[in-house]
Design a protein around this nucleic acid. Sequence first.
DNA 1: CATACGATAGGACATATGTCCTATCGTCGC
DNA 2: GCGACGATAGGACATATGTCCTATCGTATG
Lengths: 241, 241
Amino acid sequence: MDASGRYIARYELSRIFSPELLAALRLRRYDPGAIIIRSGDPVDEVLFFVDGRAKAYSTLDNGQRVLASFYLPFDAFGEAELFSSERYALTIEAITESTCLCLSAAALLGAAPSNHRLLAYLCGRLGAKLNDRFTAESINLRYPVERRLASYLLASSDDGGIIAADDLGDLADYIGCSYRQLSRVVRDFRARGILSGRRGGLTVADRSALEPLAGDLYTRSASVPPRVGRRLGVLERDDER
Amino acid sequence: MDASGRYIARYELSRIFSPELLAALRLRRYDPGAIIIRSGDPVDEVLFFVDGRAKAYSTLDNGQRVLASFYLPFDAFGEAELFSSERYALTIEAITESTCLCLSAAALLGAAPSNHRLLAYLCGRLGAKLNDRFTAESINLRYPVERRLASYLLASSDDGGIIAADDLGDLADYIGCSYRQLSRVVRDFRARGILSGRRGGLTVADRSALEPLAGDLYTRSASVPPRVGRRLGVLERDDER
DNA sequence: CATACGATAGGACATATGTCCTATCGTCGC
DNA sequence: GCGACGATAGGACATATGTCCTATCGTATG
């Protein structure tokens, strides 16, 4: 079994891709800092993110940057533009060594009639991204930085307190404030014992102190497991008759 | 031909829906102010918006509101949650008398294998909504209210200068500022001759003065016509053989 | 080990914006 | 026509935040 095959098995891709499309997946590796998708390029493929960490962002005409999302596997890149644009809207960059399974847009579009499961999966991902994005936006637009950071920390720290973004500049671009203001709030959180970690590192030391600050902001949007897997299982049983 | 049939013809819905699903569409009318979809309700149907004007919003725990979108026909409601959630994320309310063609979620999910065109259409709409939402968010998060309003006015005023939102409170919730600050900027724009119209009304009187304020913020995200219609035309020819 | 560079940190000051209040206007219903 | 109510408008004040600057730290490279 080659590298593609291992990822296909790990993420059970045969459940949503037809054999024809499975065979058309091509493995590609990226170094840290490499550009996976460049904003403005023609939409010529969809990438399935199977290993590493990545981020998507856009740069505005005032030179400021807005960071749309941090990604962990399994996810799709370029699917938002596939049926609606000719050019990619965002730049996606590898944070760590990363791996994608790449599929040409032409192959996917040509095989659409026999890939309703993949289309349903993409609908599910896009819907979840839209709702998650809107929630984050609402928080960032309407709450002070203290609450934005608290919400972000609660949503993205793991059991050990380590958070996904390890670059304060990126984090400021994600929650939509200046580095300076984020620095103030981080300093305050450290003074209150909420955050620990050496200079620049962010480790959540006291989750319970974050909860009243964050309220129910992020948990309100929690998505349940994708419906497609459950419902289309019924179709699979019908096919077996 | 009944009312459903007229909308089906107007929007050429037979091009993306199978006959089975076309037959399952049910027409429903809403009064101004009526709730079309309520946040938190179970996801039991998808609605296709065929007449009127509507808005989608969410209310935060600090009592503030964030307005996600204004809608004109043709559009879909509830599709974002269909494959990813059990409950609707947003409330959608009719601004004017409105009409939807409603489709039960169960029917749509059951007929997914024979509706790849509809799935592709939904992917396209979701992708476009995600990109448009992100653009609006970036502007609202990173630019002062003056520029936000200028961008909004450029994007949403028609040739006669009439804009889609006729309620300043809604507009403030959409661009993410207080009514007070919006009021200041509107006053300034009136004093500069950019806006005209009686108290509360917003009519763009001088588009060219808006352009330097807005820059290329909204036009940068302009989407081309949906790819699905063009590309799937090829599939239709194949089927005819 | 020394240097360079990028990331982090904090001071000083300005301002865009929000909150809270009072006043006015326009529409609707009686 | 009158009164009620919701939308609009603007004053006063406070503050969260951004800009711009200087200083320090940590890491990589020669």
